[in-house]
């Protein structure tokens, strides 16, 4: 990924120098090497903080909402999976397409630091990438780890190296090497359980929720000016889950609001501090939509109507749809 970072820096420098854009959105170095954060770069001096390595999982498309309000031109570097989210934001009119210069950058799959730690590595000081492996340098010695084993969950369901939307691209497309993965596998497994087991699973999973709203605020499809849960006028506003019913309520509504608009970018379960598998809820809706109304990938383009905003005269009947899967 090293030479891609170099190409990005040069591209950003040219754009800023030529004044083609007023700011560039990319990733900037953090304290450690793995906590890269999204960053705005307004002038060329700041560019040396720009970084692009195996820890740039953050989806930058949501930051464009703020910029396109101030009718300035912004350049953004997007991985293939982030471009779907940008299409969705354009379709929801939260981002003005003409004020964004989209530069597609290849991605070989991002690494999940927790999975690295789960391999018994502590006090990590540095990680260098070479080919399909990572050498991890820790206070307790260095270790070799295969990249495919420590990929983020969302990269396992990678939607391929094609860009859904891009003005320009940098570098050659890279494939994400990972074991074959059916993103609906866990959903199907849950569906096969009895209602009692499913309820117990979700009650356990959702009880960990501390209502910190990270899942809602990172989600590019959740882009309302004022969310239903923050609006004191709405009867559902609430700051904490008093019991299991309210936990489920918050998550059903959050998942329902993005149903048909969720591009399955996996950011919600990546950022959840409690590690709740929120993507399973979204994937359940995606699986249902595909099954009932034909395959639909949100953000594949910026104009087809979302499934819940359109209908077909001979749609399946509500009761029948869930027959057979008790």
């Amino acid at each position: 990924m090293q030479k891609i970072e170099q190409l990005i820096k040069e591209k950003a420098r040219d754009l800023l120098a030529a004044g083609q854009v007023t700011s560039v959105i990319a990733w900037q170095k953090g304290e450690m090497f793995y906590d890269n954060a999204p960053g705005y770069f307004d002038n060329t001096e700041e560019l040396d903080a720009l970084v692009y390595n195996a820890f740039c999982a953050a989806n930058l498309s949501k930051y464009l909402i703020a910029n396109t309000k101030k009718d300035e031109k912004t350049a953004v570097f997007l991985k293939p999976c982030d471009t779907y989210s940008l299409n969705q934001l354009i379709k929801d009119r939260r981002v003005q397409r003409e004020q964004v210069l989209v530069i597609g950058i290849p991605c070989a799959g991002m690494v999940d630091i927790n999975k690295v730690k789960a391999q018994g590595l502590k006090g990590i000081i540095g990680i260098t990438e070479d080919g399909d492996n990572l050498t991890v340098e820790t206070a307790y010695g260095t270790k070799q780890v295969a990249r495919a084993e420590v990929l983020l969950n969302k990269c396992l369901a990678c939607k391929g190296s094609a860009y859904a939307v891009s003005d320009e691209t940098i570098g050659e497309p890279m494939a994400v090497k990972h074991a074959p993965y059916d993103r609906f596998a866990v959903v199907k497994e849950l569906e096969s359980l009895s209602p009692q087991e499913r309820f117990a699973f979700w009650q356990e999973e959702l009880s960990k929720c501390i209502r910190c709203n990270a899942c809602r605020d990172i989600c590019p499809a959740c882009s309302c000016e004022q969310c239903l849960f923050d609006n004191p006028e709405s009867p559902l506003a609430g700051k904490a889950n008093n019991n299991s019913a309210e936990e489920q309520l918050f998550h059903i509504i959050r998942a329902y609001h993005v149903a048909g608009r969720c591009t399955d970018c996996g950011e919600c379960s990546r950022v959840c501090p409690q590690g709740i598998r929120l993507d399973l809820l979204n994937r359940k809706f995606i699986k249902d939509i595909n099954e009932f109304y034909g395959d639909y990938q949100a953000g594949a383009d910026a104009d087809t109507n979302a499934p819940l905003l359109s209908f077909d005269v001979d749609d399946v009947e509500p009761g029948a749809a869930t027959k057979g899967r008790e």
């Binding site: 499913r198 699973f201 009650q203 489920q248 059903i252 329902y256 359940k284 249902d288 009932f292």
Partner: peptide, 13 residues
């Protein structure tokens, strides 16, 4: 309602 019923069933209700 089709999606809501399917999700409620998914959550074990």
């Amino acid at each position: 309602m089709t999606l809501l019923m399917s999700m409620l069933s998914f959550l074990g209700v």
